[in-house]
Structure formats: structure tokens, C-alpha cells
Amino acid sequence: MLATTTTRTTGTMLALGGGGFSMSDDGTSAIDDHLLDLTGKGTPKVCFVPTASGDDNGYARRFEEAFAGRAETSVLSLFCHEPWGYVDPTMLLEQDVVYVGGGSTANLLDVWRRHGLPAILAEATAAGTVLAGISAGMNCWFEASSTDSFGPLAPLDDGLGFLPGSACPHYLGEADRRESYLGWVATGTLPEGYAVDEYAALRFVDGVPVEAVSEQPGRPVLRVERDGDGAREVPFDVRRLPGA
């Protein structure tokens, strides 16, 4: 594995453990509404980056449908899929939101580094662009994470390091996520970090967690810390979003 790239960033980031348009039957999502509100703009520019799914066309189209009429949408396809084709990744510097989709965290990181996205994204968020992502799109911002990129759940230690510590999405929504993450933090295999359930999200400002939100009841967001030979969960107060 590559050594962790630690590049602390300034700006706003929203880490989704699950939910959003991609887990909604009709594309509506209170978390996505909240994400748009964070820009402070009536019709923000939102770019979807589906690298982790191999630029799955259906995924990108669902994004466009979900945000149509309330955002100026675009898709960055590093695999040059039609109808989007290849676009210079520096277009991310012009966005109000960069929204990263789920899939393989490991593949996302390798492709992004080949195309120079880490430096572009760091510049974008420092200039005011909100960075957001679900599942792999949550994992990528941290130093390390829990991932199924290799089949079985495994620790991954070469994230971008925009946010400190480790990440675990789908915390209660997928089998073995919680048990394995607690074990890795307890042994030091992963650094202490943040666990976010599906249909919940954790907002960071300048690398500091400031707000946990959800679009369904009973969806926890937790800080996970080493505690002797084990690990403990420290819950955030989770705010239920309007309309959820």
C-alpha cells in the first residue's frame, strides 16, 4: 500500500455514511437538500464524481435527475464515458459542490492520484467548494478507512488525509462493519476515527466535526476511540433534518 498522504485542508466537507439520492427510491434526500443549503446559493454548481463505481452511467444519470432544476449539474468522468467524455479535472475549481459517489475506495484513490485530483480538490475546498461523498466518497477524505474494495472488509491506510483519523460508513447498515471497525481501532490497525450510519452524515469545517445530521430516525454518528485494550463509541447529537 502507498503511504498515507496527509494534507489537512480548510473548508467544508460532508461525509455521508449512506443515503442521499443513490439510496432513495425517488431521488429525494434531506441530506442532499442540506448539502445544497451549505453553499448559500440558489442554484449552485454541483459536480458528481463517480470514479469509485468505474463511472457507472446509470449512477451518474440518477444524480442528474435528482439534482435537475435546483443545481447546475456536471459529471467528471475520468474513464471518458459518453455522453460526458473527458473534461479537464481543473473544472472542479469552478464548482460549489463536488459530490463523490460510492464504490471502490482503493480504485478511486489510485485513479485520482494518476489524474492529479488530490491537489485540485485541496485547492477547491480552500477556495470555498464544499466536498461531499457517500461510502467510498466518505472514506477517501480520511487518512484511513474500512473498505470492501478487496472483497471482504479490510483496513485501508492510504487515504487522502484531508480529514484526520479513520472512517467507517454503513456502520450499522452492513454486516460486520461495526465489529470489524471496533476491532481495528482497538488494536491500532486503524487510527481513531468516525463511524457514520446509513442515512446520516457528519459535517466538518477546517477538519473539525461540527454537526451530525440524519434523514431517518435512529441513525447514529459516532467518534470511535481506543479504550485500553478495546474501543469505545462516543455518540454525536444527531439533528434530524427538516422534511426527513
Rank of each mutant, 00 (worst) to 15 (best):
V130D: 10
G102N: 01
A200R: 07
F48Q: 08
G165Y: 03
L78D: 02
V75T: 14
L93N: 13
G19D: 03
W141L: 02
P209S: 10
A167M: 14
R239D: 14
P220F: 05
D55R: 06
V205G: 10
G137L: 10
S104V: 00
V100G: 07
R203A: 11
D148K: 00
D56E: 15
G58Y: 08
R61H: 09
L153S: 02
G40C: 13
A122M: 05
P50A: 10
L78G: 06
G193I: 14
A68E: 15
M13A: 12
G54Y: 02
V238K: 07
L36K: 06
F162A: 02
R219A: 02
A106L: 12
C140P: 06
G159D: 02
A167H: 08
L16C: 12
A52C: 06
E64D: 12
R61Q: 14
W84E: 04
S24D: 03
Q216Y: 13
L109H: 01
P217Q: 11
P164G: 10
S180C: 12
T9K: 00
E123I: 13
L131Y: 05
F150A: 04
Y99P: 01
L38M: 11
A68Q: 13
L108I: 06
T129S: 02
T73P: 02
H170N: 06
E233N: 05
I31Q: 12
D32Q: 08
P155E: 03
R178A: 02
G85L: 05
I120F: 09
S74D: 15
A66P: 05
S77P: 04
P235W: 07
E179M: 07
R114K: 14
L156I: 01
F162G: 01
A106F: 13
V87L: 07
V75R: 01
T51H: 03
E94M: 03
S145P: 01
T189I: 03
E72Y: 00
G19K: 02
T4V: 14
P155Q: 08
T9C: 03
A124W: 09
P44D: 12
D96H: 09
A200E: 09
W141Q: 05
T4P: 04
E192L: 06
Y171L: 15
T5H: 08
G133Q: 10
A231N: 01
R223H: 11
T147V: 13
T147A: 04
L2H: 15
R113N: 09
A212K: 08
A244R: 07
T9P: 00
E225Y: 01
G17M: 10
A60H: 04
T4L: 08
V100T: 13
G137W: 06
F236Y: 14
V97D: 12
P191K: 11
R8E: 09
G218C: 08
V130W: 11
Y59C: 03
Y194P: 05
G27D: 05
D229N: 15
T39W: 07
L36R: 13
P118D: 03
A122T: 14
A144I: 06
P164I: 12
I120V: 15
G218M: 10
E143P: 03
S22G: 05
G19V: 04
T73A: 02
G128A: 07
G133A: 11
L131E: 02
G128S: 10
P191N: 08
L16P: 02
D229G: 15
D33T: 15
